[in-house]
Simulated assay, not measured.
Amino acid sequence: MRVDILGTKVDQVTMQQALEKVEEYIKNREHRHIITLNAEIIYRAQHEPKLKEVINAADLVTPDGAGVVWASQKLGNPLPERVTGIDLMLEIVKEAAVKGWKIYLYGAAPGVAELAAENLKQKYKNLKIVGTQNGFIPSNEMPALLADIKAKDPDILFVALGAPRQEYWIREHLEELNVPVSIGVGGSFDVIAGKVKRAPKIFQNMKLEWLYRLIKEPRRFGRMLALPKFALKIMQETRKKQRSK
């Protein structure tokens, strides 16, 4: 079942249910697009119809952040839990090492995907990472990248170009690549590579990872302004629903 949050549809799934979906997609060998959706991108989609279209066309949309879960509760159709991009990626990788799924990493700065791949392979000895490529290749090299992904035939393609660029890229190439699972994972490669430190557990447990990122990266302040605007929109929607009863 999907929950409507300001016109974007988010699946009512737990982490375990999302993993079961991933396994189903791989078994069926059909190209599927997974989006981990946060409040910032939902707010952006209010002013970007094409983005809303891409989100709602995805095969699985998980709530990436406490703000999305809070919004679902306020709107009276609660989501069970957060299923963030990096957590979902790490759980998929763990399963891939056991089940033999092949993985391809595309995105982040030069050298980061390779380092992330090495760190993952050190942790999971049987993990099959069949290819890596940074996210800064020139447009004239894109055909070679697409050919390489097709030739390597991964079961899972992780794309770390930042949202919503990664979502647009996956949607554009989804059918051509025919990868069973393609998922945008934002800055996850940087964290796995050790280039960026993830918020400490206390921030994660308090659902304040956004605050930690803002403290560490003050340049994100402009982007973070979307969060109070998102909250205001949700409160307005809540009041509308109450008046219509």
Rank of each mutant, 00 (worst) to 15 (best):
A113R: 01
N119W: 07
Y104D: 02
K123N: 10
Y106I: 05
I129W: 07
E172S: 11
V179G: 03
D153S: 15
L157S: 06
K195G: 08
G162C: 09
I183R: 00
Y124D: 04
F158T: 00
I202K: 13
V179C: 03
K201G: 14
V98H: 12
A147Q: 14
L161F: 14
A116H: 03
L174C: 04
A147E: 14
V191A: 09
F189G: 00
Y168Q: 06
K195Y: 10
E175I: 13
A199P: 00
L157N: 04
K207V: 12
L105A: 03
A163R: 10
R213I: 06
V130E: 02
K125T: 10
A97P: 07
W101Y: 12
L127D: 02
P164F: 07
W169V: 08
F203N: 11
G111M: 02
K102Q: 11
P110F: 04
A96L: 10
L211P: 09
Q166T: 06
Y106N: 05
M142R: 14
E167H: 12
R198S: 10
Q133L: 09
I149Q: 01
G107L: 07
E114L: 08
R165N: 14
A117I: 06
Y124F: 14
V185E: 00
P180G: 03
S139E: 13
A193G: 06
N119S: 09
A147N: 13
K123L: 11
P143I: 08
T132P: 02
K128Y: 05
Q133Y: 05
K152T: 12
L127R: 04
R165H: 14
A151Q: 11
N119E: 11
S188E: 03
W169N: 02
A199I: 03
A199W: 00
V159N: 07
Q204I: 12
W101T: 01
E172F: 04
M142P: 05
E209G: 08
Q204Y: 11
P154W: 00
Q122N: 12
M142T: 13
I192K: 07
P154T: 00
A117R: 09
